[in-house]
Design a protein around this nucleic acid. Structure first.
Length: 824
RNA sequence: GCCCAGGUGGUGGAAUUGGUAGACACAAGGGACUUAAAAUCCCUUGAACAUUUUGUUCGUGAGGGUUCAAGUCCCUCCCUGGGCACCA
């Protein structure tokens, strides 16, 4: 039996199996309508140069799911690719004088090696990279289709401009006036830009949440819901003194009789007719403020009286019109009615400018004195000073007043959304060219489908300024009009890289297809069953991807509306309490750890140290602990390899107590590991259970395993434990499996089944309580009756000490758990 | 300010429906092996008090409550993390 143990040479083992898997096409997936498919996808990386620990964690979780589901009998699809357009490539090009194309391709090579070195089970035949023409031509194709449908359009609008990135940004990418990429403040610029009409899908995006409830983290759904920001209200036509319409939008029509002033956005076209120099100066100043300054919290509301008067159609009140820095041109009509008595912001503004306050909703329990008001009354109440609506509860008045306005013809119910159309133009080079042409005669002309792709030139010179080099490239920019053949100019803006990642999950099914997708492939594999990635994309990528999926569904390209059935958002990897970053100097390089401990140890650490949704604190000692556990498995299997008989089964054998216990522990382990991985996605406890099993195995006397019964139990242990370890630490598990003489590939083995009859303890420990306090414990047979339990408890010496001479009020018996005797 | 998640040993974290709090691991201490060390294997390890074993009391952010029984349910408060916050 005791051959000389081999050392655990992890790097040799890992490289051997990685090579083996690649050469045997082990993870190639083929569609098979007779099998149930399972599509696991992790958010594909930007090829920035090297993997970081966040990637490693994300992809380790994904690989565990993929390998596990495969063993559970699903036809698993697990692809990977590259989100390979974007600004860092350009910045690197400027800094180091490397063409973005070269830089990107080199990074992909390097990172692909890193992924393979981790042993991830990707089907590399489905690899797609967004910077390649065979990928981005379909971006352009989609752009044309969306243009045809009016979902892509160009308009002049105030947009977010990031001076550091030298480009415009979508609202989602400039939240709070801060650039998502470089965190500098964005400014507003009036520019003509391309947009996708995501607002057409605002209601769909919101309704789709119903289907995702339960399988997507609630937090993500809430964030999206807030971002979409649906509200219902009333559009009311106020009038200028001249009689012209002056429409506003409000969600509080019940307060319309309390309007004492109006406020208009500084960008509002009506202001062009204002001549007062003081007002003009104010408007100019506010327009130059960054959005960050304008919207910042502590900033006081600024405003100025335009001198214009507005008439309230409900009661004929004439009120002043102010310009205010807090009114947004992009929402509603760019103007609001202000009711200081019932809106905190309006109240503060009115106090600042000495505008009267008019009470129209009173508190029935404690009538309000307008002159004594310290703040707006925003709670529910009853209408006052509101003509025929007096006495109505204000919630009711919302409907009645809306009805009245609609009947009178000066109001209309309206639904408004906070979400804006998605600004997709970028004034950058390293992205997908927008397939549009500007003709002197014909205006905007789309590039005909047959002329796609519009190739992005790769021979670029960055020695100029930081502007996109495309603007200077005559060969790219100058073209002929597809319509009239006359002189024309290409669009030199490129697409937001979030366009690329909005449909890649579907493209993975058929990266080389003649059409955008191979119908059979995409129809079979989509949607993604399990998507895994960071929560930072909640209102960016995850919203855009849902939008694209819906558009593609409407176009008949996808059969389902939602792209990701289930979503897991993994927590960050941190060190010393902070996110790993170069500036903090707390980065741990995956390569170094793999070299020291091997990929299996890194994988195990990523899964064991914290549940996937939580953040994970890096710990060198923790890594060593995982390495030690693998060593324990390695030594145990090596020690007893000679006793292994593949087909041996302890079924029907008469096992002694020790072996019986091992077998029971094994089946209990299978049961909870399966539950933890399959149902709970709590991998740390699954690993803990296997550690317990290994601890139990170490305590068994060698002589026990040397018997025929022992050999059978041991073989059953190996036949179950190694498959269970395979999705976690696939290399060492495969090596041990092979060492035992098995010919079948471990990753192709079925997931072990738990024998329910064995996964049950025949002895349990019960506790005896007196007044809820534990006084004694006892081992009893698992099928003990309630009556026997009570009898034992009453008869137990320690219990007797406590109940002696007291009257027993009540006895609670929980079968198999406890007896609680309640005494006076 | 509003919404959500969380607060458990020296540390990361367990505890599936209210039923033995602290699984598993790290750290620490002890032992075996060794000339010695490393590695490995085994044991101890929430706190306090007492003790020969046994034991008693306290203990899941704080304070109340429900219950035979609360980390788990309810109320109030404190703290941490995340999201939203002029959207009319």
């Amino acid at each position: 039996m005791a051959e000389k143990e081999r050392d655990y040479n992890f790097s040799g083992i890992e490289l051997k199996w990685q090579k083996h898997w690649a050469e045997s096409n082990a993870f190639l997936s083929r569609k098979d309508p007779t099998k149930k498919k399972y599509y696991v996808l992790e958010m594909f990386p930007y090829p920035s140069g090297r993997l970081h620990m966040g990637h490693v964690r994300n992809y380790t979780i994904g690989d565990l799911v993929a390998r596990f589901m495969k063993m559970k009998g699903f036809n698993v699809f697990h692809p990977m690719g590259w989100d390979s357009f974007g600004l860092p490539a350009e910045n690197a090009a400027i800094k180091n004088n490397i063409p973005p194309f070269r830089w990107t391709a080199d990074n992909i090579d390097y990172m692909k090696n890193q992924l393979n070195r981790m042993g991830f089970s990707y089907d590399w035949t489905r690899e797609a990279a967004t910077y390649k023409p065979e990928y981005y031509q379909w971006n352009q194709w989609m752009f044309l289709k969306m243009y045809e449908k009016g979902l892509a359009y160009k308009k002049k609008a105030p947009v977010n401009w990031c001076e550091t990135c030298k480009t415009v940004l979508a609202n989602e990418q400039a939240e709070g006036g801060i650039c998502w990429r470089c965190e500098s403040e964005v400014t507003q610029k009036e520019l003509e830009q391309w947009f996708f009409k995501i607002t057409d899908y605002a209601d769909d995006l919101l309704k789709g949440h119903e289907a995702l409830a339960g399988t997507w983290p609630e937090q993500v759904l809430t964030m999206q819901k807030n971002w979409i920001g649906r509200s219902t209200g009333l559009r009311i036509n106020f009038r200028l003194a001249s009689g012209e319409d002056f429409p506003i939008y409000t969600t509080r029509p019940d307060t319309v009789y309390g309007v004492t002033f109006m406020v208009i956005a500084p960008e509002h076209p009506l202001l062009e007719r204002v001549t007062d120099p003081k007002v003009k100066e104010f408007i100019a100043r506010i327009r130059n403020q960054s959005m960050f300054d304008r919207m910042s919290d502590d900033k006081e509301k600024e405003g100025i009286d335009t001198g214009l008067k507005i008439v309230n159609p409900f009661n004929g009140d004439i009120v002043p019109l102010y310009v205010g820095n807090f009114v947004l041109m992009g929402y509603g009509t760019g103007a609001i009615m202000a009711v200081p008595a019932h809106d905190t912001r309006d109240f503060a503004f009115a106090k600042k400018f000495g505008i009267p306050v008019k009470l129209v909703i009173d508190n029935p329990k404690a009538p309000i004195d307008v002159n004594a008001m310290q703040d707006a009354y925003v709670d529910e109440g009853v209408c006052v000073n509101s003509a025929q609506f007096n006495g109505l509860p204000n919630m009711e008045a919302i409907e009645k007043i809306s009805d009245y306005a609609e009947q009178q013809g000066f109001g209309k119910r309206e639904v408004n959304f906070r979400i804006r159309d998605w600004l997709v133009s970028r004034q950058r080079y390293w992205g997908c060219p927008i397939p549009m042409v500007y003709c002197e005669k014909c205006g905007i002309v789309p590039v005909p489908e047959k002329d796609l792709p519009v190739l992005l030139p790769t021979d670029v010179d960055f020695r100029g300024d930081s502007q996109s080099p495309l603007i200077q490239m005559d060969g790219f920019r100058d073209t002929k009009c597809p319509k009239c053949g006359g002189r024309a100019r290409r669009e030199t803006d490129t697409m937001d890289t979030f366009v690329d990642s909005s449909w890649y999950y579907a493209k993975f099914t058929s990266p080389g297809s003649k059409d955008i997708f191979d119908r059979d492939e995409v129809g079979y594999w989509m949607p993604v069953d399990q998507y895994i990635g960071g929560i930072e994309h909640a209102v960016l990528h995850l919203l855009y991807a849902r939008f694209f999926s819906m558009v593609m569904n409407d176009m008949g390209l996808l059969k389902t509306r939602e792209p990701f059935t289930s979503l897991l958002t993994q927590g960050m990897v941190i060190k010393d309490g902070a996110k790993m970053s170069k500036s903090k100097g707390n980065v741990v390089d995956p390569d170094a750890i793999i070299e020291k401990y091997g990929a299996d140890t890194v994988r195990l650490f990523m899964l064991f140290t914290a549940p996937p949704q939580k953040q994970l604190e890096w710990s060198d000692k923790g890594v060593e602990g995982c390495f030690r556990f693998i060593g324990r498995i390695w030594r145990f299997v090596n020690r007893y390899a000679g006793l292994y008989e593949r087909a041996a089964s302890p079924d029907g054998m008469d096992l002694g107590a020790a072996l019986q216990k091992v077998r029971r522990e094994l089946h209990l382990t299978i049961k909870s590991v399966t539950y933890d991985i399959n149902e709970r996605m709590q991998y740390n406890t699954a690993i803990a259970r296997m550690m317990e099993l290994v601890n139990t195995l170490y305590l068994v006397d060698e002589k026990e395993f040397a018997t025929p019964e022992g050999r059978a139990v041991l073989s059953e242990v190996f036949n179950s434990l190694l498959p269970m370890l395979s999705p976690l630490i696939p290399h060492v598990a495969a090596e041990l499996w092979e060492m035992l003489g098995n010919r079948q590939q471990l990753h192709d083995m079925p997931w072990p089944a738990c024998m329910e009859s064995l996964a049950r303890r025949d002895e349990v420990e019960i506790v005896f309580q007196v007044n809820g306090k534990i006084r004694a414990k006892e081992q009893v047979s698992a099928d003990i009756t309630k009556e026997e339990m009570e009898k034992m408890a009453r008869g137990h010496e320690k219990v007797k000490d406590f109940i002696e001479g007291k009257s027993v009020k009540k006895v609670i018996v929980v079968p198999g758990k406890l007896v609680n005797i309640v005494i006076q």
